[in-house]
């Protein structure tokens, strides 16, 4: 009971903070915060399949793309669409799709969930690194489809003028919902089964767990939130194109969940702030630098070199990331216990 009150208070105060930030922060820091918020949603859900369930997959860019396109198509007004689809006329169904923000986001999430369900059959026939390459291929195929179906996606030109409903109230709240949902999943019979699969899939089966179904469930859940996050992303930056949904996006999420600790949701939270903040802070690396009067010229990609090195270094020397597979609360608890004894 005491626990429940504490949790309710924490959720309420987080909502209060979101509300305060939305109304009182300057546009630039708020936009960084929005970016972090979206990546929190994406990284948390990615960690559910990769970290908690231990199914190392590389598809989030695909699911984010599906959610982003779906939401965008539902949000862009019909007249705007007629003008926007420049390569070929939009398919009739595209013109008919219209919805408010929340249903549009849910549609994005559900579309991703559905695709996840469809591909789970080939995906979970394989384990380990095969899974990684199949899911990587899937993320890649989604992008190819986005390029080649201009009647739906406007091809390489992408979609713009997406109404920007996504403010920090939406993003922050959905981020909080995602976090709570993840924690609730982990602390249920489903989460235990997911962790069991990560630790030893055969033993999990020997406990009567239908491992195929549990993996699919984690995959679909992950896809749902990645789709919703994609919808938020589309509305937040108000323009999307296939090139935004490359492996780079997945790579960023991978760094985040590895840094935070595979399986740790609070770790993911902290790591998202560090990585996204770091990306913003290291922006200078990509631009011209003047070192002792010598202009280095612009180096797009320098930040990614740094982050790739960070990932390698982490794997070599600090494989468990910040929190390992534990949550911040567990760490505080065990510290506290040690002090008492």
């Amino acid at each position: 009971m005491k626990n429940l009150i504490i949790k309710t208070l924490m959720i309420a105060s987080t909502l209060g903070l979101i509300w305060y930030a939305h109304h009182n922060m300057d546009p630039y820091p708020l936009s960084i915060l929005n970016n972090i918020g979206i990546f929190v949603i994406l990284a948390l859900s990615y960690n559910l399949i990769n970290g908690v369930t231990g199914q190392f997959s590389l598809e989030p860019n695909g699911f984010v793309a599906i959610g982003a396109y779906m939401t965008a198509i539902f949000l862009i007004p019909t007249e705007t669409k007629i003008d926007m689809y420049a390569l070929v006329d939009p398919a009739p169904i595209i013109l008919e799709m219209q919805a408010n923000f929340l249903p549009a986001l849910l549609a994005g999430g559900l579309a991703s969930t559905f695709i996840a369900f469809m591909i789970s059959v080939p995906v979970f026939r394989v384990r380990g690194d095969y899974l990684a390459i199949v899911t990587l291929g899937f993320g890649f195929i989604i992008k190819i489809f986005a390029m080649n179906t201009p009647a739906y996606t406007n091809g390489a030109m992408g979609l713009n003028d997406i109404p920007d409903y996504a403010n920090f109230l939406w993003i922050g709240t959905i981020g909080l919902v995602t976090f709570v949902a993840m924690i609730n999943i982990i602390n249920s019979r489903f989460g235990r089964a997911m962790k069991a699969i990560r630790d030893d899939e055969d033993a999990a089966t020997a406990m009567g767990v239908n491992t195929y179904w549990i993996k699919t469930l984690a995959f679909m859940t992950s896809a749902f939130f990645e789709g919703v996050g994609g919808g938020l992303l589309a509305s937040f930056i108000s323009t999307i194109a296939p090139d935004q949904f490359t492996f780079l996006l997945t790579f960023q999420l991978l760094i985040i969940i590895v840094l935070g600790g595979l399986g740790s949701m609070t770790g993911t939270l902290v790591a998202t702030i560090l990585v996204m903040g770091g990306m913003e802070w290291l922006r200078f690396l990509d631009s011209n630098m003047n070192i002792f009067g010598y202009d280095t010229g612009a180096h797009p990609g320098m930040r990614m070199v740094v982050f790739a090195m960070l990932l390698i270094t982490m794997m070599l020397f600090a494989r468990k990331g910040l929190f390992g597979d534990r949550e911040l609360t567990d760490i505080i608890k065990s510290r506290f216990k040690r002090r008492k004894s």
């Binding site: 069991a196 630790d199 030893d200 055969d202």
Partner: peptide, 8 residues
Amino acid sequence: NIRLFKSM
């Protein structure tokens, strides 16, 4: 060979 869920 004992196969417990190691992280749990």
